[in-house]
Design a protein around this nucleic acid. Structure first.
Length: 456
RNA sequence: GUGGAUGUAGCUCAGUUUGGUUAGAGCGCUGGAUUGUGGUUCCAGAGGUCGCCGGUUCAAGCCCGGUCUUCCACCCCA
């Protein structure tokens, strides 16, 4: 017997109801991207593995989905290679393509490849699925959509400001309260330099990223276990204990980072960004959060992360500045900054908080009941007129019991039903029934179009 | 990748402790009461290889092993 049909772990089908909700998210995000002057691109689902490997840290390489070479990939290997090569290395011998892990690295590749056609600074948006061979959990999928906006070819902090505004506008439009966390890799680099461990930036940032979660003692224990010098940990402690307003934190770091030019530069960037924001305050809370580190290792300046203020689900948007991502594809000295909205997590938040709009654009407005061939012939041109006026309308395709047709309208949540029987045909009218109230009225086709036309 | 839970009708879940004939409920679905009027009510009905594979047993939804799914923690992240 055939197995029950199924889909791979961590992937999902979407029903019409779910699609209506997803489109609400995508449409909202896309509208805001467009109003800021960003242009769409798309890139293939698969990239050459060489474009993907090594861009996301050690962890990221493991999470890449690799695509087996087509044809006789085995025949090209000798028996010895086949039996003696460790499984990990064998992968690269039989696979040269992989599914994209995010949209930023393919974008960098795109920019390098199309550098002569692109007008810089290039503002692009991209809404496509990405794949990660992660272990699924709530809010964590193996296939999920990212909505990326990036500006490449400009060092200006105005770009960072614009991204913050976009974040603010998107979540306001979706009706979600969020906290925008802001940090700067240069500040982190300055800190690790000042405590005398400049090479250990990754270990240190990963550890302090957990401060909120596991507490000071455990963070110190982890740092010690990672082999950090006790003096360094001691020097780091006041930074971790740093409290107060953004202004106070910045002042503290100003003193702490004396002697690290990079650190002070990063600090100046953070300050400038807050000054910019004062000109038009975001509705969302923006916090300078030193514990924000982010694992992706191509970030070099500002880093962002957005969390729901109303529910625990991990970050729903994140990003940062990368000074040399195009360098690895052969184009040096081009800085970019961008963020990525996690549509699937935003969906989960909206669903749990019940913030999806009641009706969607996908919903039908009017259903004609089917009374028979004569009546159908009369209705066909009326349907045409309604649709021309932008009114989503349909006719029940089969001449079945009225109860069944009404039930269809009911379960499809269609607010209006039109009845055109023998009498209506004779009188040249339709009987329009409003389902919720049950009220009925007789209208000419012109009046019908007028009544149901979407508000201008 | 490591550790821990979970899976019974379309959906939400009982039943598993102490193995024992035809596996239940609510909601939903189909038909009727009601041949041009849905939602409410009433009546009737359909729907399950108890995730899958194997083992123990006279006998397995229930016990054992494996596997897959979903979920939780770690890791990491959108």
């Amino acid at each position: 017997m055939a197995d029950k049909p199924s889909i791979p772990k961590g992937t999902r089908d979407f029903t019409p109801l779910e699609m209506a909700r997803r489109m609400h998210i995508f449409d909202t995000i896309r509208t805001i991207f467009k109003i800021h002057g960003f242009l769409p691109i798309e890139t293939p689902a698969m990239e050459n593995l060489s474009s993907l490997m090594g861009k996301y840290g050690e962890e990221g390489d493991k999470l890449l989905f690799k695509i087996l070479n087509s044809g006789d990939f085995k025949g090209k290997l000798t028996d010895r290679e086949l039996t003696d090569t460790p499984a990990g290395r064998l992968g690269s011998m039989i696979s040269e393509k992989g599914l994209r892990y995010d949209l930023t690295v393919p974008f960098a590749r795109f920019v390098v490849q199309h550098r002569n056609e692109i007008i810089f600074p290039f503002k692009r948006y991209q809404i496509q699925p990405v794949w990660r061979a992660d272990r699924p959990q709530r809010g964590r999928y193996r296939e999920f959509y990212q909505c990326d906006v990036d500006v490449i070819g400009s060092n200006s902090l105005l770009n960072e400001l614009e991204l913050i505004q976009i974040i603010d506008e998107v979540f306001a439009a979706l009706g979600l309260k969020v906290v925008i966390k802001l940090n700067n890799r240069k500040v982190l680099a300055g800190i690790v330099k000042m405590i005398g461990e400049p090479e250990r930036m990754t270990d240190i940032t990963v550890a302090i990223d957990k401060l909120e979660k596991i507490g000071m003692e455990k963070v110190k224990a982890e740092l010690e276990q990672k082999g950090l010098k006790p003096e360094a940990i001691e020097k780091l402690e006041p930074v971790l204990k740093m409290m107060g307003t953004t202004e106070e934190k910045l002042d503290f770091l100003e003193k702490f980072l004396k002697g690290s030019e990079t650190g002070l530069n990063g600090l100046a960037e953070v300050r400038k960004l807050f000054v910019y924001m004062e000109a038009d305050l975001p509705g969302a809370a923006v916090e300078f959060d030193l514990t924000l580190a982010r694992g992706l290792n191509y970030y070099t300046g500002s880093i962002f992360e957005v969390k729901s203020a109303e529910m625990e689900i991990g970050s729903i948007c994140g990003g940062g500045r990368y000074d040399d991502l195009t360098g690895i594809f052969g184009l040096e000295g081009v800085s970019g900054v961008g963020i990525s909205f996690g549509a699937d997590r935003i969906y989960d938040v909206l669903l749990q908080l019940e913030r999806f709009p009641e009706r969607s654009e996908l919903d039908t407005t009017l259903l004609f009941v089917n009374f028979g061939e004569q009546e159908v012939q009369h209705i066909i041109p009326i349907l045409g007129r309604l649709r021309e006026s932008g009114i989503t309308s349909e006719i029940y395709p089969d001449q079945v019991k009225m109860k069944k047709q009404m039930n269809y309208a009911n379960s499809r949540k269609i607010p209006y039903v039109a009845l055109v029987g023998e009498q209506e045909v004779k009188d040249g009218v339709v009987t329009l029934k409003e389902m919720e109230s049950g009220n009925q009225e007789q209208l000419t086709p012109a009046q019908l179009v007028e009544k149901l036309s979407p508000a201008k």
